[in-house]
Amino acid sequence: MRTFALRRSAALLGLHRAGVELKTFFRERDAVVFTLSLPIVVFVLLGAMFDGVYPGSDVTTAQYLAPSMIAAGVASTTFVNLGTGIAADRDDGTLKRLRGMPMPPSAYFLGKAVTALLITVVEAGLLLVIGVVGFDLTVPTDPARWLTFGWVFLLGVTACSLLGIAVSSLAGSARSAAAVTNLPYLVLAFISGIYFTPVGQLPGPLVTAGSLFPLKWMAQGFRSVFLPDTILAQEVVPSWEHGRIALVLAAWCIGGLVLCLTTFRWRGRRDR
Results as ranks from 00 to 15, higher is better:
Thr181Cys: 09
Ala174Lys: 01
Ile194Pro: 04
Ser168Ile: 12
Lys216Asp: 09
Ile194Tyr: 04
Pro184Asn: 11
Leu186Cys: 06
Leu186Thr: 13
Leu186Met: 12
Val187Glu: 06
Gly200Trp: 00
Val180His: 05
Tyr185Asp: 04
Leu206Arg: 02
Tyr195Asp: 05
Ala179Asn: 11
Leu215Tyr: 00
Ala219Tyr: 12
Pro184Tyr: 14
Ser169Glu: 13
Gly204Ile: 11
Leu215Ile: 08
Phe222Glu: 15
Ile191Val: 14
Leu215Trp: 02
Ala171Pro: 12
Lys216Leu: 13
Asn182Leu: 12
Ala171His: 08
Ser169Ile: 14
Leu183Val: 15
Phe196Ile: 14
Val167Ala: 11
Tyr185Lys: 03
Thr208Met: 03
Val167Trp: 11
Arg223His: 10
Phe190Gln: 02
Gly193Asn: 01
Val180Asn: 04
Val207Gly: 05
Asn182Pro: 09
Phe213Leu: 13
Ala171Gly: 15
Ser211Met: 07
Ile194Gln: 10
Leu188Tyr: 05
Lys216Met: 15
Phe190Gly: 09
Leu212Lys: 01
Ala178Gly: 08
Arg223Pro: 12
Pro203Cys: 06
Ile194Lys: 04
Asn182Glu: 08
Gly204Tyr: 12
Ser168Ala: 15
Ala174Val: 00
Thr181His: 02
Pro198Trp: 07
Ser211Ala: 14
Leu183His: 00
Thr181Asn: 03
Tyr185Cys: 04
Pro214Cys: 06
Gly204Pro: 00
Val187Met: 07
Thr197Pro: 01
Leu188Glu: 01
Trp217Arg: 07
Leu188His: 05
Lys216Asn: 11
Leu215Gly: 00
Tyr195Gln: 03
Phe190Ser: 07
Leu215Gln: 11
Ala219Asp: 14
Val199Tyr: 01
Ala171Trp: 02
Gly204Val: 11
Pro214Phe: 05
Trp217Gln: 02
Ala219Met: 11
Val207Gln: 14
Phe213Lys: 06
Phe190Asp: 01
Leu186Val: 10
Ala177Trp: 00
Ser192Asn: 04
Leu206Lys: 01
Gly193Arg: 06
Phe190Asn: 02
Gln201Ala: 07
Ser192Cys: 08
Val207Met: 12
Leu206Glu: 01
Pro203Lys: 10
Gln220Glu: 15
Ile191Asp: 06
Ala171Val: 09
Trp217Gly: 05
Tyr185Gln: 13
Leu186Lys: 01
Ser211Thr: 09
Ser211Asn: 13
Trp217Phe: 02
Leu212Ile: 10
Phe190Val: 12
Phe196Val: 15
Ala178Thr: 11
Gln220Leu: 15
Phe196Lys: 00
Arg223Val: 11
Ala174Asp: 02
Met218Trp: 03
Arg175Thr: 11
Ala171Arg: 04
Ala171Ile: 02
Gly193Glu: 07
Trp217Tyr: 08
Ala171Gln: 10
